[in-house]
Write a protein that binds this DNA or RNA. Sequence first.
DNA 1: CTGATGATTGTTCAC
DNA 2: GTGAACAATCATCAG
Length: 98
Amino acid sequence: MAAPRETKKRTTRRKKDPNAPKRALSAYMFFANENRDIVRAENPDVTFGQVGRILGERWKALTSDEKTPYEAKAEADKKRYESEKELYNATRSSKEEF
DNA sequence: CTGATGATTGTTCAC
DNA sequence: GTGAACAATCATCAG
């Protein structure tokens, strides 16, 4: 046990880095992007209490194959973050902030 | 090298 | 504007 999935205290995290190279999105983020309108379309009655929950269930309901398209995006998104990281490395290494 | 950590990402819903 | 479940992430740092 090292990183207990504590589903709490999140959002608006504080930034400790100069240009904070915000990570990258997550497969779930991409998946949710597609599910948000799909799941909700099939469950127009359910609200976050249900949809949000069902969403996660469906997410896993899929298989690595179904997640593949989402993971693929997550992977690409990571590269996006890479760009930040790069500048982040430059700025943070720089004494002067330009 | 390895392990542990933290920070972040996006959705929906409501007040 | 925020938080909260839902999930992934995964880069970074440190000794």
